[in-house]
Amino acid sequence: MARERRVLTAGSVAVTGAVALVLGGAPAVAAESESIPPFRSLPSSPPERAGTDAPDVGHAGGATATYTVQSGDTITGIAIRHGLRTVDVLTWNDLSWSSIIHPGDVLTLGAPGSGGGDSGGGDSGGGSPAAPDEDADTYTVQAGDTLWGIAADHDLSLAKLLDLNGIDEGAIIYPGEELVVAEADGGESSDPPSIYDSPEYDLQASLNAPQAENVALIASVGRGLGVSEHGIAIAIATAMVESGLRNLDWGDRDSVGLFQQRPSTGWGDRTELMDRGVATTRFFHGAPDGATRGLLDIGGWESMNFGDAAQAVQISAYPDRYDRWRVAAWGWLAQHG
């Protein structure tokens, strides 16, 4: 969609939903691409379109439907109202996740020549699960499910689950759909190795904007508490292991947030732990009532091995993972902190 470049002002604009890119792929949410707040459940079928929200259709027949952006619109909201995937609307209009749309802009709501955008998602190259093999084990999607969570529940990597179903990591899944979670008898597993199986000890990754922002926040909170750069680097590496430097509202059992702290083990209530500043403060100082210990509560942490110091706080089932992000954490702190 050709548009004149505009300067962002304080006026009314509509923007695409913030998308947190994940190391190894962002989990797709049942019935919706990831948006803020993440992982909220939507109806199993697209909502009916009100008269004022109906696309402006050109000529009958093979014409592609269009929609004129209104004040307050977001691309994700427009897509949902018209039964489409956000990624398809972006692609059809040559937009990216960071693009800004303005009231009055006209968006295409279908592939060129498709005849409209009310196909309930259409065929967008890997967006819909393939028909399962009759002999393969399947799982019926429930409201609130994510591809990431389904993979974890069936001891699969996300990449393997996507491969089994012929979909990509941006696919939308709806309650009632059948996903293949195990190959038919005789099939050989081809799960890709975990990043922690890499022969390279010091792991590296490029951060996207939300991840870099979380590095800056951890550094700011740490310095405000008087924590040394060494302690801040430990916190950054810990958040990378626990959440991929993302503020997740889900995790193992009741774990949430940057550091995957659990309300049930005394870190605080869920709302508190979803506050990035509170979660970071808890990593350094523990819970206010002393139910958990933070890094600064660990005697002699400054002289401990980098990974051991992180493990003393997190008490993880995978204690060897933190030290492998030590070099990267120092680099991210220098670049973004």
Rank of each mutant, 00 (worst) to 15 (best):
residue 264 S to M: 00
residue 105 D to I: 01
residue 232 I to M: 05
residue 2 A to W: 08
residue 211 Q to T: 10
residue 300 G to Y: 09
residue 125 G to I: 09
residue 81 R to E: 08
residue 172 I to A: 04
residue 62 G to Y: 02
residue 251 G to V: 10
residue 272 E to C: 01
residue 189 S to Q: 08
residue 235 A to R: 04
residue 245 L to G: 00
residue 209 A to Y: 08
residue 20 A to L: 05
residue 172 I to G: 03
residue 57 V to I: 11
residue 49 R to F: 06
residue 269 D to H: 06
residue 98 S to M: 06
residue 173 I to Q: 01
residue 257 G to K: 03
residue 327 V to Y: 06
residue 44 S to V: 04
residue 45 S to F: 00
residue 275 D to H: 02
residue 74 T to W: 04
residue 103 P to H: 06
residue 266 G to R: 06
residue 89 V to H: 03
residue 201 Y to E: 07
residue 304 M to Q: 09
residue 36 I to S: 12
residue 233 A to R: 02
residue 232 I to T: 05
residue 211 Q to N: 08
residue 301 W to A: 12
residue 95 L to N: 03
residue 145 D to R: 09
residue 73 D to A: 09
residue 39 F to A: 08
residue 32 E to L: 09
residue 150 I to W: 03
residue 145 D to L: 09
residue 275 D to S: 10
residue 318 Y to L: 07
residue 248 L to I: 09
residue 247 N to E: 12
residue 20 A to N: 13
residue 299 G to V: 11
residue 279 A to D: 01
residue 296 L to Y: 00
residue 310 A to W: 01
residue 40 R to E: 14
residue 49 R to M: 14
residue 311 Q to C: 13
residue 270 R to C: 04
residue 148 W to G: 06
residue 20 A to Q: 13
residue 336 H to T: 02
residue 127 G to E: 09
residue 64 T to A: 11
residue 10 A to R: 13
residue 293 R to W: 02
residue 175 P to T: 10
residue 120 G to V: 04
residue 263 P to Q: 07
residue 27 P to S: 13
residue 334 A to H: 08
residue 102 H to F: 14
residue 75 I to A: 07
residue 125 G to N: 12
residue 8 L to Q: 12
residue 298 I to H: 06
residue 40 R to V: 15
residue 235 A to P: 08
residue 57 V to Q: 12
residue 300 G to P: 08
residue 254 D to H: 04
residue 267 W to F: 11
residue 122 G to N: 05
residue 298 I to E: 09
residue 128 S to F: 04
residue 82 H to Q: 08
residue 89 V to N: 02
residue 246 R to V: 08
residue 330 W to G: 02
residue 241 V to Y: 05
residue 173 I to E: 01
residue 37 P to Q: 00
residue 99 S to R: 09
residue 117 G to W: 00
residue 105 D to K: 01
residue 4 E to Y: 10
residue 193 P to D: 12
residue 229 E to D: 15
residue 222 G to N: 07
residue 236 I to R: 00
residue 169 E to K: 10
residue 106 V to N: 02
residue 73 D to E: 11
residue 204 Q to K: 12
residue 52 T to C: 07
residue 313 V to Q: 00
residue 234 I to A: 01
residue 306 F to Y: 07
residue 2 A to L: 10
residue 214 N to K: 05
residue 35 S to Y: 04
residue 242 E to V: 05
residue 78 I to G: 02
residue 91 T to F: 15
residue 37 P to I: 03
residue 81 R to V: 10
residue 213 E to A: 15
residue 311 Q to Y: 10
residue 83 G to V: 00
residue 45 S to G: 13
residue 233 A to F: 06
residue 142 Q to L: 10
residue 178 E to C: 02
residue 198 S to F: 10
residue 111 A to Y: 13
